Computed example of a mutant assay.
Amino acid sequence: MPDDSKSPNHVAIIMDGNGRWAQMRHRPRLVGHHAGAKRVREIVRAAPDHGVKYLTIFAFSTENWKRTQTEVAGLMKLFKRYIRREAQNLLEEGVRVRFIGDRVRLEPALVDLMDGLELLTADNDHVHLTIALNYGGRDEVARAAKRMAYDVAMGKLNPRDVCDETFPKYLDTHVLPDPDLVIRTSGEARISNFLLWQSAYSEYEFIDTLWPDFTADVFAKVVSRYGARDRRFGAVKA
């Protein structure tokens, strides 16, 4: 059994490297995305074994619309396929699924599947899987600010009560704890507009492994390194 006192309660992952993984094998980029989707299944199942209760994955960013129409369309089909294929397994394995991000631009058929999966798994509590889809940290903060401004205008919120404890209640992640550990695969060392507010005090791991090669064993090694870190949150030990 994992030592939960040394395990990250919430791990967030920037799943990078799918396209490069495929190109290295002289295959279309979408082949890499399909391989990456299979890896998601493995990591979700492995998470509880390492004391991880919350897992958040970055599936599609607000900037990813800039990719080719073929790749974007293929990704949207993949998301729908993943939900249809995995819904029953996620239910039976006790996974609660949530989606964060702006759903306005997504096609109605995909949004219906997302809503359905959230409802189907609403009573699960073994592991909480959050999928960031059409998500951007700046976009999330802007949308939260609009909701807060509306409540102020409607008299539901006193401007004097706006603080760093009030604002998170308007974020997409308002029901989730902040991530303890953020992992980015593929060797890139940037956060790419992911969980900007929530990761203010997160530990980061930037690893060279491409996402389709990110096995449960690699996940275990990264999580184990977290236990050796000294998290002070700005304080100094006496």
Score class of each variant (00 low, 15 high):
153 A>N: 05
156 K>A: 14
155 G>H: 07
50 H>P: 09
217 D>R: 13
209 T>F: 02
55 L>F: 12
38 K>L: 13
83 I>K: 02
95 V>S: 03
192 S>I: 08
82 Y>D: 00
220 A>W: 00
124 N>C: 09
70 T>Q: 14
208 D>Q: 15
228 A>T: 06
117 L>W: 02
34 H>T: 06
18 N>Y: 01
11 V>N: 06
106 L>Q: 08
74 G>H: 10
23 Q>F: 08
225 R>C: 09
135 Y>L: 10
164 D>K: 08
42 E>G: 03
111 V>G: 05
150 Y>R: 15
201 Y>K: 08
2 P>C: 02
146 K>D: 13
4 D>P: 05
230 D>C: 04
36 G>L: 03
83 I>N: 00
60 F>V: 08
146 K>E: 13
80 K>T: 07
39 R>T: 13
160 R>W: 03
52 V>G: 12
237 K>P: 00
190 R>L: 09
194 F>Y: 15
80 K>R: 14
180 D>Q: 03
101 G>C: 08
143 R>A: 14
20 R>C: 01
23 Q>L: 13
211 W>G: 00
188 E>Q: 12
101 G>A: 09
94 G>S: 10
16 D>L: 04
133 L>G: 10
225 R>P: 00
83 I>W: 00
53 K>L: 14
197 W>Q: 09
174 H>Q: 12
111 V>E: 07
69 Q>G: 08
7 S>V: 07
38 K>A: 13
173 T>P: 05
109 A>R: 12
125 D>T: 14
72 V>Q: 09
114 M>E: 12
196 L>C: 07
233 F>W: 08
57 I>E: 08
96 R>I: 01
181 L>N: 02
61 S>D: 10
15 M>E: 00
178 D>R: 11
169 K>E: 13
139 D>G: 15
212 P>L: 01
153 A>I: 06
39 R>N: 06
65 W>G: 12
139 D>C: 04
173 T>Q: 06
180 D>V: 02
136 G>V: 06
132 A>C: 12
96 R>Y: 01
29 R>E: 06
235 A>E: 08
171 L>Q: 04
216 A>Q: 02
176 L>M: 15
33 H>L: 09
150 Y>A: 15
58 F>C: 11
74 G>A: 10
238 A>V: 09
172 D>F: 11
16 D>P: 03
81 R>P: 00
66 K>I: 05
125 D>S: 15
109 A>Q: 11
229 R>D: 05
55 L>Y: 11
223 V>L: 11
13 I>K: 07
70 T>I: 09
216 A>D: 01
81 R>Y: 06
172 D>A: 11
151 D>L: 07
71 E>M: 05
67 R>K: 12
129 L>K: 03
212 P>T: 00
211 W>Q: 00
80 K>G: 15
136 G>R: 04
130 T>E: 04
143 R>M: 09
155 G>V: 07
91 L>T: 10
